[in-house]
């Protein structure tokens, strides 16, 4: 007697939980060869709304954590990813039709990206911040601070896992919380990464993952008044100029689509705002 397969339904990751889409919709995700892989939740604008609420609620704790602690938490993600590399290699091979070697290399790159960004958590401020010279008995200090809630359209470039990580990790370094729309046709690794995040030390709500149609969800995030920045890294195929226009209404910081998102300090600093303070040098 042949055993029935038990395909997994991939759900959303919002506020540390894995809810189904509020709309009740799912869509079939196929392998590169066109075979059925699994059903994924087809997120709606209300899921995006809930995700923004969760991200906003998590912002205070995450941005208030010490930089050293954030670095540890991000490094822990790399550790857990290492422990589940077989699962990710398997998923990448199925979803992208990649060879075992290519999939393995992609997981390595994703893990290395987490480690690279984790290291920056307690260092980027020293590089981007400054003690400004002023002509008076004052300290004048500029420090970068997190922008807030960042909405991200995750790219496929470099692979479904690596593209996702290279978009999400830099925003987390400075203490932003994120709402990410996973790539539409290859979202499964993103949700699996959500399962890694849920069992790591990342507080619930810091990373929120939506699956479904970015063309449907992204406009709601772009115009959402409680989103502070919009990373259109993977939105090249969308009508992203209109997303930019919608985001301008609430003065969001917007990053345009890019073909490549190799780890860089610039990506961390893209989601920071500079605060400058004056302080007397002495009370005498």
């Amino acid at each position: 007697m042949t055993r029935l397969t038990v395909p997994k339904t991939y759900k959303l990751y919002i506020g540390g939980k894995f809810p189904r889409s509020e709309s009740g919709r799912v869509y079939a995700v196929s392998s590169a060869g066109g075979d059925f892989l699994a059903n994924a939740a087809k997120g709606s604008r209300k899921d995006a709304r809930d995700a923004v609420v969760a991200a906003r609620a998590a912002l205070k704790g995450w941005s208030g954590a010490t930089a050293y602690n954030r670095g540890q938490v991000l490094y822990r993600i790399a550790e857990l990813l290492e422990g589940r590399r077989a699962q990710f290699i398997d998923e990448i091979m199925q979803a992208e039709g990649a060879s075992a070697a290519a999939a393995s290399a992609q997981v390595d790159d994703a893990i290395d990206a987490w480690v690279w960004y984790a290291g920056w958590a307690d260092k980027y401020v020293q590089v981007a911040g400054n003690a400004n010279p002023v002509s008076g008995p004052y300290f004048n200090l500029s420090v970068p601070e997190p922008t807030g809630v960042v909405a991200i359209v995750a790219p496929q470039a470099g692979g479904s896992l690596l593209g996702f990580v290279s978009a999400v990790a830099p925003a987390l370094v400075a203490g932003n919380t994120v709402v990410v729309i996973a790539h539409e046709t290859a979202p499964l690794t993103a949700i699996s990464l959500g399962e890694v995040l849920a069992t790591s030390d990342v507080p619930g709500g810091v990373v929120n993952i939506l699956t479904g149609s970015p063309a449907e969800i992204a406009p709601w995030l772009a115009s959402h008044a409680d989103v502070n920045a919009l990373d259109l890294l993977g939105a090249g195929a969308l009508d992203w100029v209109n997303l930019q226009i919608a985001a301008a209404d609430t003065l969001k910081r917007v990053l345009p689509p890019e073909p490549d998102a190799a780890p860089s300090l610039a990506r961390i600093l893209a989601f920071t705002e500079t605060k400058t303070v004056w302080h007397t040098k002495s009370l005498l």
């Binding site: 709304r49 923004v52 906003r56 709601w220 115009s223 959402h224 008044a225 409680d226 989103v227 919608a246």
Partner: peptide
């Protein structure tokens, strides 16, 4: 505000 403007508002 959401119903008036057509986009989600926020606590700000």
């Amino acid at each position: 505000q959401k119903m008036t403007t057509g986009h989600y508002s926020g606590p700000d």
